[in-house]
């Protein structure tokens, strides 16, 4: 029974983190930009969504969309710091992440004025009636409610995946891919590559904020520390996805990234079963990530050797 609920939990969080990973896929894989501002934009999305729902009384969907724009802005700041002021990519991310820690804290204070608070870092309210506990959800028998939540999450993830896939097929999307792969060519096409970087980072963080907003909805709780470790989690998901699942025929990179997020968060949840005290959890996370990377190194060298033996399609 514990194993069953852990699995369901793992899938729910995995789908939520899949959106996060899809955002990071844009910055890390497409733009080749290791963006650390993710640790800040994830809780930013959560706190914005919570404020819009509780303070402004907006329904969940518009609140999540507004959170997207919040992430968009924060990502653009990272991009502008890097492109216009020539701050290195890692530092630009760190600056924005650090600044957002205060922004989210101030926003939390706005929430906690007259709500039930646990600490100043988190906020929990039964009034946070969102996607997963509204009237529709209440009409579904308790036993099936977990599957209902999974269903909604799946729809959102597929929607985000389709949007990103379509976007990457447009002229603008092509330019983004070209910027990450060969900046000089973008210049020779008469375009300012820096602008595409800013745009890509904004979009990536927009999706990260959406993930944060959905995370807050999922747990009817906003937690200011929820951003910690999200960069690692997202990168792990993207790398596992691209290296393991993108070899499957008809699997696009985006599908592979979703699978990566699911696998990684399932593994994380099972680790909780092993280490019930939670002391070694982060250590186990790191070891798991390392094992996956080592495994990936082995398989990719095997794959390329197999290709060579077949007569080598690629020169």
């Amino acid at each position: 029974m514990l194993f069953y609920s852990t699995t369901i939990d793992g899938f729910q969080m995995g789908l939520c983190f899949a959106i996060l990973a899809l955002g990071v896929y844009i910055s890390y894989s497409i733009l080749d930009f290791p963006d650390l501002s993710v640790d800040g934009t994830f809780p930013l999305g959560g706190v914005l969504c919570t404020i819009f729902m509780l303070r402004l009384g907006l329904p969940a969907v518009p609140a999540i969309l507004l959170a997207f724009f919040g992430g968009l802005l924060a990502g653009a700041v990272t991009g502008i710091l890097h492109v216009k002021f020539r701050i290195s990519n890692l530092l630009a991310g760190i600056i924005v992440m650090t600044a957002l820690l205060s922004v989210t804290l101030a926003a939390t204070k706005l929430l906690t004025r007259n709500g039930q608070t646990t600490t100043i870092f988190s906020y929990r309210s039964e009034n946070l009636v969102g996607l997963f506990n509204g009237d529709l959800a209440k009409s579904i028998p308790t036993g099936a409610r977990d599957y209902f939540i999974l269903g909604i999450l799946l729809v959102i993830v597929i929607l985000v995946k389709i949007i990103i896939d379509l976007f990457l097929k447009t002229k603008l999307g092509y330019m983004l891919r070209a910027t990450g792969s060969n900046e000089k060519l973008v210049v020779s096409l008469g375009k300012n590559a820096g602008n595409y970087k800013i745009l890509g980072l904004a979009l990536a963080n927009g999706f990260v904020a959406v993930a944060g907003a959905i995370y807050a909805n999922l747990f009817t709780q906003y937690d200011n520390t929820s951003g910690t470790g999200k960069v690692v989690l997202a990168l792990a998901s993207v790398i596992i996805g691209i290296s393991v699942f993108s070899h499957i025929p008809f699997f696009k990179d985006t599908t592979a990234v979703i699978c990566g997020a699911l696998v990684y968060s399932l593994c994380l949840n099972y680790l909780v079963l092993v280490d019930t005290n939670g002391i070694y959890l982060k250590l186990l996370n790191a070891v798991l990530f390392a094992i996956i990377l080592i495994f990936n190194e082995k398989t990719s060298s095997l794959l390329s050797r197999a290709k060579l033996r077949k007569g080598g399609k690629g020169k």
Binding site: K169, T170, K171, G173, Y174, M175, R177, L189, G190
Partner: peptide, 20 residues
């Protein structure tokens, strides 16, 4: 194909339209 479509669009804006 994708490379050529990028090059062919040079001088025009790169908007949200299907590239190929």
């Amino acid at each position: 194909t994708e490379n050529l479509s990028l090059a062919e669009n040079k001088g025009k804006p790169y908007f949200l339209r299907l590239a190929v």
